[in-house]
Design a protein around this nucleic acid. Structure first.
Length: 422
RNA sequence: GCGAUUGUAGCUCAGUCGGUUAGAGUGCCAGGUUGUGGCCCUGGAGGUCGCGGGUUCGAAUCCCGUCAUUCGCCCCA
């Protein structure tokens, strides 16, 4: 993760706190509209949780986790993803029994021990949702729709939605056998990577960028043809529900996901302008996960969207975001005898702020020009000039920073005057 | 984890063949100009030359390692 800064950086404009807040706010608003509630889980979890849920053989667990031992000898891991911790938290607090259908969202940091590059960071933030307790493909469609709605709302429209079904563990086993039978006779022609995957995790053979492998796989068996009846119906219904909701998608028969716990629905949202890191987000169904974590048999589905990648795309598309105005409305500039004028400034500032108006002052007591420059740096719209002359007359100079017009306003009226402006 | 790339002031960058006290522009601060700025002039502060080790009389410069960046691979968000 990069540092996100309080003022827009000249370079890397996407690393501006206000922009991040705007994107997070958009996500929260979309979640609110869809009926999702926020869950926050800690960064540290027992290592075992991830090993069991994500799978020992996956890249994430085998080489990408920040893991360490406590003094008591327990193994802890900084969470590499948000789903398993959410499951753990819900189990621990009995949320599954209290709420037959649970719709959750989170904004959180994930950690993966890997080489950084643009769009990929060891600490990255994900915006995600999880739904527990619903098998209806309509909820799959809703989750996908929510993700697409989020992108549409912030202004990213050139992303593509790819969907597939990875079936149940049983149907997947049958498919894997067929896939291996298909590849075995020409195994030597596959890339080194492809051959390794054939041995370790044949499903991943499909997820290759190697042109030669892609040619060899052209007539390979497809996951959809090996789905059990229920999964097949589920996938078909999902497609029709997406169509009902007006969400455009394409079926990608080679789409498989990196975690072991996915069942049936798998999807990915792919963007442009991100170089090698093209995945904006992804997710899928995980009907066996809760049980795997020691809970009751509970279906689930969710997704995670990469915050950094989202920010980068917004940046390259030059999209303006409705960022908060953090500039003070008024900035007090003091002149003249310090002992007389500074206490008056402190009092005036307190009054203005108590009235709900943002205001600031220069705490260095420099000459006028310096104070005014500080006001400009902060983007103040008005200067309140307070000198001993003004104090003697019981007024304050109200200076419009845009027009440079300045007029005296009685000290007793300045708060209501500012309220009128704001 | 693999291959390549870059790393000098807050920012953008010079720095020759290894040789004096590492420079410029910009920004910041101050003075010119005790109470009305942004221009201009003058001055000032600001540097573990990414970090650690090595070679050498001498290293920003050469070598090794390491960390970080960027690009690709793997994987993912």
């Amino acid at each position: 993760m990069n540092d996100v800064l309080p003022f827009p950086p000249v370079k890397d404009a996407w690393l501006h706190t206000a922009r991040w807040r705007a994107v997070e706010a958009t996500f929260r608003e979309v979640c609110r509209r869809y009926g999702y509630r926020e869950i926050r889980t800690p960064i540290l979890e027992h290592t075992e949780l991830f090993k069991r849920s994500i799978g020992e053989a996956t890249d994430i667990v085998s080489k990408e986790m920040f893991t360490f031992e406590t003094r008591g000898g327990k193994s802890l891991t900084m969470k590499p993803e948000g789903t398993a911790p959410a499951v753990r938290a819900c189990l621990e607090h009995g949320l599954f029994s209290d709420h037959p259908v649970l719709k959750l969202y989170y904004v959180g940091q994930n950690f993966r021990y890997e080489r950084g590059q643009k769009g990929r960071y060891r600490q990255h933030q994900q915006l995600g949702v999880e739904v527990f307790g619903a098998v209806d493909p309509a909820i799959d469609a809703e989750v996908i729709q929510l993700a697409m709605e989020f992108y549409r709302t912030i202004g990213i429209t050139d992303q593509a939605l790819k969907i597939n079904s990875v079936g149940t563990p049983q149907s997947r086993a049958a498919f894997l056998e067929a896939l291996r039978d298909y590849a075995r006779p020409h195994l030597a022609d596959y890339s080194q990577e492809g051959q390794q995957r054939f041995e370790l995790n044949a499903l991943r053979m499909l997820d290759t960028k190697d042109q030669g492998d892609l040619r060899l796989l052209e007539n390979a068996p497809r996951l959809v043809d090996y789905l059990d009846d229920e999964s097949k119906v589920h996938f078909e219904k999902l497609q029709s529900y997406l169509a009902e909701a007006g969400v455009a998608f394409e079926i990608d028969h080679r789409l498989v996901r990196g975690f072991d716990y996915y069942t049936r629905t798998a999807f990915e949202i792919v963007g442009t302008n991100l170089g090698a890191q093209s995945a904006l987000g992804g997710g899928g169904r995980y009907d066996g996960l809760v049980e795997e974590c020691g809970g009751p048999s509970t279906p689930g589905i969710g997704f995670g969207l990469g915050m950094e990648r989202c920010m980068l795309v917004l940046d390259t598309l030059g999209i303006q975001l409705p960022v908060d105005d953090e500039s003070p409305l008024a900035f007090i500039v003091t002149l003249g005898e310090e002992a007389k004028v500074r206490p008056a400034a402190v009092r005036l500032l307190a009054e203005i702020r108590a009235a709900g108006i943002s205001a600031d002052m220069d705490y260095r007591y420099k000459k006028f020009g310096q104070q005014a420059r500080t006001a400009d740096d902060l983007g103040a719209r008005y200067l309140l000039v307070l000198g001993d002359g003004e104090l003697d007359r019981g007024v304050v100079g109200l200076r419009n920073q845009t027009t440079k017009d300045q007029r005296d306003v009685p000290l007793t009226d300045i708060v209501s005057e500012l309220q009128g402006i704001a």
